[in-house]
Nucleic acid binder design. Structure first.
Length: 510
RNA sequence: GACCCCGUAGCUCAGAGGUAGAGCAUCUGACUUUUAAUCAGAGGGCCGCAGGUUCGAUCCCUGCCGGGGUCACCA
């Protein structure tokens, strides 16, 4: 056996493992037949009738151990929660000896009967104890105390963010609220699917590896296909493929899409994130706004049991129809105290200056509008708000506004100060789409590496003909933040992107 | 990419220019209804890494690595 252990506790556990094997204990058996999960027992136990719980089998990870000589109390944790178990040396001498070699973190199965202790805790009195998995690394020990009001006070919670994100499995074991976040996220996605499926829209899968990336303005991750010897891009959006499917005759398609954007990382951004996009034929953005209101309220009620979301500071955001709809330029005009619609680039520049909005003097008109909005308006949009009708330069895939050709029929939904959804009446005029792509190409030639790339096949599809279509994208991670009150997108992504850990010695063993 | 903050035991954190401390966890002993179990004792640290200043650095300085935050980019 190597002596090169990371620390004494790991070494001790490896030695215990050896000792267990020496005594004929199988440290990694194959199955264990459970009769109950912890929750079921706690929910169904009745003091006047323990009959139904006279013989139960539970399994879980040891989270607390209180040894008192010839009797021991321990808590095991399963997917539903924790339950206390009790074992006495004189009843199970051999297994009690084995227990001496067990630790917090080990996974065990307990068979026995349920009773209530003197201090009132429903507990499994062991008639048998089996080891199901020996844990070889110490777990952060989180101690809980219950005060007079029954509130749980957590002592020294495992809280180092780096460790929590890098070792999410530990985070999930010792921080029960983390597990709840991801259950909520999953339920939200299920509810979204159900909503779309009930309306007959088809869930589809489109390429993640794309020869031409498109559908958004962002820098891509580039990879290479060896056999075809060609560059491929991880998708930044699935929009152009979904529209091809509408051309193909599907009248409602959606995809839950992992997208990849080679951009910075912060509280609202992870390089790989989840979007939901949906396209419905013969509809426009007005219809979509109504749908989004209904969708959000329906899903939120299903997930949270009430039509309100929650911010990281605990503030509730009630969802009530109709969500206010404000036109982008009017919102900015209100914020700066003068109309901005007719302003030139130069005039917008000086407005930015007056309101201490930091911009490059060479910034385009669209860029200035975007900056004014995101600095002066967006942070105030806590309650759900549709911002509608964007300048055409900002939206190369959206259809021109039916009454103002300088605008497009587009809305973004803001919630909690974050952009949650982006949608348009989709541009289906191939001539206009080509002109917009060409404008993007000019921007790209001018050094804008986030400008869109011309996709000739997509134009071919539009020439075949796409019916009038409404399209919507929802940021799933951000919506999950508002479902769970998370402060950072990393708190709703199981394994957020981290730099590799600095070199450390891998675990040594015999 | 820029700036600010952080990095000390398995976990949560103190600390100080003279090479370290607490609580929990761990180990030994006591304890057959405990629950932050208790009581008595013990072990455990390249104080993120590398240079520099100094008689002496974990502490001061510089660089690097990792993380958090703000900004930029973006959703």
């Amino acid at each position: 056996m190597s002596t090169d252990f990371e620390n004494d506790q790991i070494q001790r556990r490896y030695e215990e493992l050896e000792e267990l094997i020496k005594r004929g204990v199988e440290p990694y058996p194959y199955t264990f037949d459970r009769t109950h999960q912890s929750r079921q027992i706690l929910d169904t136990f009745r003091d006047d009738d323990a009959g139904g719980l006279a013989d139960v089998a539970v399994a879980g990870r040891i989270m607390a151990l209180r040894r008192m000589g010839k009797a021991t109390f321990f808590h095991i944790q399963d997917a539903q929660g924790k339950i206390q178990c009790y074992i006495k040396a004189d009843e199970l001498p051999q297994q009690y000896e084995m227990l001496r070699l067990l630790d917090i973190g080990d996974i065990v199965g307990v068979r026995g009967f349920v009773f209530r202790t003197r201090t009132g805790e429903v507990t499994v009195h062991a008639r048998a104890l089996v080891l199901l998995c020996k844990s070889l690394r110490p777990l952060p020990v989180v101690k809980e105390e219950r005060d007079e009001q029954g509130n749980i006070i957590v002592h020294d919670a495992f809280s180092d963010k780096e460790q929590r994100y890098r070792r999410r499995y530990i985070d999930l074991i010792v921080n029960p609220h983390v597990r709840q976040v991801f259950i909520t996220r999953s339920r939200m996605i299920t509810a979204l699917r159900r909503y779309f499926d009930e309306r007959g829209w088809l869930e589809v899968e489109t390429p993640v590896l794309q020869p031409i990336y498109g559908g958004a303005s962002a820098r891509p991750f580039v990879t290479h296909h060896n056999a075809l010897d060609m560059p491929l891009y991880l998708r930044i959006a699935d929009e152009l493929y979904l529209k091809r499917l509408i051309v193909g005759g599907f009248e409602g398609v959606y995809e839950i899409s992992k997208n990849f954007r080679n951009e910075g990382i912060d509280r609202m951004h992870n390089p790989e994130f989840t979007a939901l996009e949906i396209y419905v034929a013969y509809r426009d953005y007005h219809w979509l706004m109504d749908m989004v209101e209904d969708l959000l309220i329906t899903v939120t009620e299903q997930v949270r049991g009430q039509a309100s979301l929650v911010q990281a500071d605990g503030t509730q955001i009630p969802l009530r129809k109709p969500f206010p709809r404000i036109r982008l330029l009017e919102a900015i005009s209100q914020a700066v105290g003068e109309p901005v619609a007719e302003k030139t680039q130069q005039e917008l520049l000086s407005i930015c200056k007056r309101h201490s909005v930091d911009v490059a003097p060479s910034a385009s008109r669209a860029k200035l509008i975007d900056e004014l909005f995101s600095t002066l308006v967006q942070p105030r949009l806590i309650e759900p708000t549709f911002v509608v009708d964007y300048p055409v330069e900002m939206s190369p895939l959206a259809k021109r506004h039916r009454t103002d050709p300088t605008l497009v029929e587009r809305f973004e939904l803001y919630l909690g100060g974050m952009e949650i959804a982006n949608a348009f009446s989709e541009l289906n005029d191939p001539r206009d789409q080509r002109a917009r792509f060409e404008e993007q190409a000019r921007l790209r030639a001018g050094g804008d590496d986030e400008a869109m790339v011309l996709d000739e096949d997509f134009l071919t599809a539009l020439e075949i003909g796409m019916p009038p279509t409404a399209g919507l994208g929802i940021g799933i991670d951000r919506l999950a933040m508002l479902m769970t009150g998370a402060a950072s997108i990393r708190d709703v992504i199981l394994f957020p992107l981290m730099r590799p850990e600095p070199t450390h010695t891998p675990s040594q063993h015999c």
